[in-house]
Design a binder for these strands. Structure first.
Lengths: 310, 310
DNA sequence: GTGTTGCCATCGCACTTTCCGATGGGGCTA
DNA sequence: TAGCCCCATCGGAAAGTGCGATGGCAACAC
């Protein structure tokens, strides 16, 4: 069994067709077609249904796909290990966490690795990818990321592997914003103003959870994907209001550049969660260290959160 | 990367040479030599040192070996899963456990699988291998076994994955044996008689642990490997004494065919332990069920053992 | 020292695999 | 019906993969 066949199969499954897969892999279409034919002959089952438009996996193909991905992952790890390269840890996270929290954690990791144990197992090469939640989920599922840090507002069904921190969310705006001068802010008043949204879905989800679907249906939302810094600057100019975790806006709140809107009730607490694949190989030790450091960097430790809640 | 290269590499590592590996794999020596050359070119490191006599792994080769084994294992599981075959669970155990205890556990597994959930994940095909401890260890290490049940006398350094049962050991002999007629038996008296040994190392280990190395040095030992039944029959004819777990000789003791020698102090308790590879794939569910059943079939549950000990 | 033995690398040769571009069938859409 | 996209298949070039034969090297026996 040649891993090229598996690579071809995974590419076809991901791109939805042989031609697209061939282009992605740098082969001629006929070559990928032949590779799949050989794969099927080798396995003894057909893994694809060739439709007029594209291809779909058979039941056997669906069973094969996760194994094929795992085999390719394993081959990659095997190569690195045999060469004696440092293990590689591909971390993914959303911008709001990459903005303030994660750099602290990673810095602590580098410091720790450079200090006491600079042996052969000193640590892993870290590759950090910042992207939207949906992109992270896709990349994690496709095996392109080993470890993902995300905010979890408790409204999604996916179970996190571990909770590593806690935080709260605020509705924030510039001190010059009309709502900032009020004693209290009601949901109806919020609606009259523009929302800046950093991550599609997330903000709406929490606002709907807090105020109900009807109220939010008509609110004007502006999406500013990919740069929390840009969003904060826009906000600083008195433009719109936004929903962000305390972690992200702590400095701005402290220095008075932004203010939290005086809502009658606090918003839902959120947690920082980590997800990883069970098979990390040599990078496992680094992940454990990293999770420990992350828990130590918890911006709002569980005890504090519980105390404030009670 | 072709898995044939990995198979060749593992074979060379196991057989200690290219020629032997080629013979084992059914290739010409020159072919295996070329395969390894390609493997090394592919990885970018040399994995073997070609000595005048045989070959030895380089450091990189040592790192590669477990990955190569794992990759071959994974390919095997991938094939089975893609074809829709039932997962396969290769169990290994020693004869003393295969004699009485394990069949009960496996029977319960089959019964349970055939009963309630006869769905697509009904269970795994079980392949049972009975062998000596050393053979089991080798086969487990080489990835030829998924799950191993063994007696653990607590005198070895290997840590078991799970303890699934407890038992005691007895020195037993035929009622017609000279020692069986005595009120008490001392270590010195034991020495004057022949020992039948079912498993090399194990019996001696426990006797040395109990009575000291000096005493046992001169004892006559007859090895009867591979058949507890034959050993018991020989014992039944008044021939020698042996050390066996209660489980194995319970029926014979109950029916008076054999008697436990009246030692002044009880022998060391032993446990039944299980070891398995962390990556079982679809057979994982079956292993969990099996371990549950094994614990339920504990011949001497922990509470009983503790009560008797106190 | 010399011959023998066993191990591995290399070479030449035959066969197979693997890739490509070109061609053609089949379904979808305009 | 024409155009388009998708995939299978074909022929030929190139690379890979197998075998047996040969030779170098180290260890061992005498």
């Amino acid at each position: 069994m040649d891993s090229r066949y598996l690579r071809a199969f995974v590419a076809v499954a991901e791109h939805g067709g042989i031609s697209a897969a061939a282009q992605a892999l740098g082969y001629a279409q006929s070559s990928v077609s032949a590779q799949l034919k050989r794969l099927e002959a080798d396995l003894g089952v057909s893994v694809l249904v060739r439709a007029g438009t594209g291809t779909v996996l058979t039941e056997a193909g669906g069973r094969l796909l996760p194994y094929a991905r795992e085999a390719l992952e394993l081959e990659e790890r095997m190569r690195r290990t045999a060469r004696g390269d440092r293990p590689r840890l591909r971390i993914g996270t959303q911008e709001s966490l990459a903005h303030v929290w994660l750099p602290e954690v990673l810095a602590a990791l580098e410091y720790g690795a450079g200090g006491a144990d600079t042996g052969p197992d000193a640590g892993a090469d870290v590759v950090l990818t910042v992207a939207s939640r949906s992109t992270l989920e896709r990349a994690f599922g496709a095996g392109e990321l080993d470890l993902v840090f995300e905010y979890d507002n408790g409204l999604r069904s996916v179970r996190p592997h571990a909770v590593v921190g806690h935080d709260r969310t605020f509705l924030v705006a510039s001190p010059s914003h009309p709502l900032a001068r009020q004693e209290t802010v009601t949901p109806e008043q919020l609606l009259a103003h523009e929302f800046l949204v950093a991550e599609p879905g997330c903000t709406s989800e929490m606002l709907v959870d807090r105020f109900g679907a009807d109220l939010l249906a008509g609110a004007q939302q502006t999406l500013l994907q990919g740069s929390v810094a840009a969003l904060l600057r826009l906000l600083g100019h008195g433009h719109g209001i936004t929903l962000l975790p305390e972690l992200t806006v702590a400095r701005e709140l402290r220095e008075g550049e932004l203010v939290a809107l005086p809502l009658t009730e606090p918003l839902r607490p959120v947690s920082i969660v980590a997800q990883w694949h069970p098979r990390l190989g040599a990078a496992e030790h680094t992940v454990r260290t990293l999770l420990d450091l992350a828990r130590r960097a918890d911006p709002l430790p569980e005890v504090t959160r519980t105390a404030r809640a009670s």
